[in-house]
């Protein structure tokens, strides 16, 4: 009996070593390990053995079964791996071929600047306001301390629809509208990005339509130093952490004192270049402390609160940041120009 088992093991393993492929392997299993296979056949003869012989023969039989099963498992593993490898070889591709693309569009550069401005000022506790582009003379001028026929109105050539309706020349009317709408003397921190119009012929540096971003802060005890600090924070967020700012006296009817804000030239870092006309500084916005007349005319009490305002040209910021040389590029919408902005994080 033991010899039959040993012989079975020898034959089976020898045959297993010669097998190739998954089909013959299964046939082998049925032949030797199946319910009606050779091992079962031999074991069926166990009943004929005397009882004292059965444990020893049983142990041999179990060893043979384990050997056959282990051989089978190992062979199956090999066969499976070979099949996988064959499939992988068949399915391999040229990984250097171009992928199936669906590239994103690019945010318009002016929108990109506005989004960055919004993010910077929202971080400083501001909200974002807007207002109409067709404005009343009152909000565009009078409520901002430009009395009728004041020479300061000449600073802004204006498109009129009627004697009283015009295309806003700046985003500042939203200052007046927001003050007027708010509870008297309640604190305000807003920025107002938006389109404005000037009656200028279009050329490389002038556009009849362009974009401004206004800022207004009103509250108790707001100081000109807060203006400087806020704009310093803005300049650092926009142009880099080591930026410096400088205020220079200026004039706007709706602020007093008024100033222009310069930042260190972002191209030469202050050493002097063509962009900054060798001064090392670049003017980026006008600002000042809200004129008491503006507070008063719009329902706030200048004895109780003070504030500051600033206004910047979005095109100017974009032109400096991205070295755009012609303001009209922003409105021609040449896809070769616009597409370039898909590839930049800031």
């Amino acid at each position: 009996m033991e010899e039959r088992l040993q012989d079975l093991q020898r034959r089976a393993l020898a045959e297993l070593a010669r097998l190739d492929g998954a089909g013959p392997l299964e046939d082998w299993r049925i032949t030797f390990l199946g319910k009606k296979g050779e091992l079962a056949e031999v074991l069926r003869g166990m009943g004929a053995l005397p009882a004292d012989r059965r444990p020893a023969v049983g142990m041999v039989a179990n060893r043979v079964r384990d050997a056959l099963e282990a051989g089978y498992a190992a062979q199956r593993e090999l066969a499976a791996r070979a099949a996988d490898e064959a499939r992988e070889r068949a399915e391999a591709v040229d990984v250097t071929l171009p992928g199936r693309r669906n590239p994103p569009g690019a945010e318009h550069p002016l929108q990109r600047v506005i989004r960055r401005l919004e993010d910077i000022f929202v971080g400083l506790g501001f909200t974002v306001a807007d207002g109409p582009e067709v404005e009343l003379d009152h909000y565009n001028f009078t409520a901002l301390n430009f009395p009728p026929e004041h020479p300061a109105r000449d600073m802004q050539d204006t498109f009129f629809l009627t004697g009283d309706l015009l295309l806003r020349t700046h985003t500042s009317p939203v200052q007046a509208r927001t003050l007027e709408r708010s509870a008297p003397n309640s604190p305000l921190r807003i920025i107002v990005p938006g389109r404005v119009y000037r009656r200028d012929d279009d050329d490389a540096t002038h556009s009849h339509a362009f974009t401004q971003c206004e800022g207004l802060v009103v509250g108790r005890g707001v100081r000109m130093s807060d203006l400087k600090g806020t704009l310093l924070a803005f300049a650092r967020a926009m142009y880099g952490g080591d930026q410096q700012v400088r205020l220079r006296p200026s004039f706007f009817p709706f602020t007093e004192p008024s100033a222009e804000l310069d930042v260190r030239c972002i191209h030469c870092g202050g050493a002097g270049c063509a962009t900054c006309k060798q001064t090392g500084w670049i003017e980026i916005l006008g600002c000042g402390m809200v004129h008491p007349n503006v507070l008063r005319m719009n329902g706030y009490d200048p004895a109780q609160v003070s504030g500051f305002a600033f206004g910047m040209g979005v095109e100017r910021i974009a032109m400096l940041l991205y070295r755009v040389e012609d303001i009209r590029d922003f409105y021609v919408n040449d896809l070769r120009f616009l597409r370039q902005f898909a590839g930049v994080v800031l």
Binding site: G125, T127, G219, R220, S225, D226, K228, G229, L232
Partner: peptide, 13 residues
């Protein structure tokens, strides 16, 4: 003019 930030009332941005 020094550079400072607003003190006082809170505004939620």
């Amino acid at each position: 003019i020094p550079a400072t930030l607003m003190e006082g009332e809170l505004t939620a941005g």
